[in-house]
Design a protein around this nucleic acid. Structure first.
Length: 274
DNA sequence: AGAGATACCTGGGAGC
DNA sequence: TGCTCCCAGGTATCTC
């Protein structure tokens, strides 16, 4: 499943091959995935040159000339690949961008939780308005203990829910929220505003370390994709708590608990996490 | 307004 | 073995 490290990897790969190419045609194969695909039919997008591929949170942005851009999200199962136009279309390829060098950039997503939309930019290099409400990047200098502590002031949600709120900090999914809270020794059930500044220090540090470890491990955090090219994610081996209900806590050996928070599986040690 | 719940979707695993 | 059921996840949107 694409988490922030995977999106970063995809964006780096695309930025090596797409800039400089022109869009000659955009094919869509259904009306909508997570969002309608109608905005891709705008003829104004064609013949424009791709000038950059970048990332904000988990959204890849393919920037075109004329302050236009394609905004993407990989959802749960989305993948992007660049292959020759002659390659047969796969079952779940919903969008195919045709390039002026005979290649295509294809968006494949079996579960259709992702999307591709066309948008406008206020200036070259700017983020689209659609991303205006996003919080800071977790690996940036803007994500500090002081920031988090201030931001959690008055928040009655559980800390785990708050940590996954993109308005507070972007890119922390369910797996990294569980792992970071365990490593910081903070219960996912703790009310967000009750998390102290020293605890925020631990938490911010563990969020950064966990994400960086995932990037070093090659990204993929669960083994959804084994088989195709054997590219099973290595970070799954480093998980300490996620998916381990009933198993002994790696720190104190008491059984790991599971409950559902905000509709998501939540794993924690009631002894190590307070 | 803030917080919680729900819809969206399908492959894969568990259980019968 | 083959069938059914349930679950996983992020985000937009709804409801209270």
């Amino acid at each position: 499943m694409p988490e922030l490290p995977e999106v970063e990897t995809v964006v780096r790969a695309l930025s090596g091959v797409l800039p400089g190419r022109r869009l000659t045609c955009i094919e869509t194969f259904r009306d909508a995935i997570r969002l309608p695909l109608a905005s891709l039919s705008d003829p104004d997008l064609l013949r424009r040159k791709i000038i950059a591929v970048r990332r904000r949170a988990r959204y890849p942005i393919i920037e075109l000339t004329g302050k236009r851009a394609l905004l993407l999200h990989l959802g749960m199962t989305g993948t992007i690949r660049v292959v020759p136009a002659t390659e047969p279309r796969r079952k779940h390829e919903h969008v195919i961008l045709h390039l002026d060098d005979g290649n295509t950039c294809r968006f494949d997503d079996p579960r259709r939780f992702g999307f591709v939309i066309a948008c406008r930019l206020t200036a070259p290099g700017a983020d689209p308005d659609e991303l205006a409400d996003l919080g800071p990047e977790p690996l940036s200098d803007a994500f500090t203990a002081e920031y988090l502590h201030t931001r959690l002031c008055g928040v009655k949600q559980k800390i785990k829910t708050a940590l996954m709120d993109n308005a507070i900090v972007v890119g922390i999914g369910n797996i990294y929220a569980n792992e970071s809270l365990f490593r910081a020794g903070i219960s996912p059930l703790r009310v967000a505003e009750k998390v102290t500044l020293p605890q925020c220090r631990k938490l911010v540090g563990q969020v950064k370390q966990t994400l960086q470890a995932a990037i070093r491990a090659g990204g993929t955090s669960i083994s959804d994709f084994h088989g195709v090219d054997g590219a099973e994610g290595k970070f799954v081996r480093e998980l300490q708590i996620y998916g381990k209900a009933g198993q002994p806590c790696p720190r104190c050996q008491s059984p790991i608990r599971r409950l559902v928070l905000g509709g998501r599986g939540t794993f924690y040690c009631s002894r190590c996490q307070r």
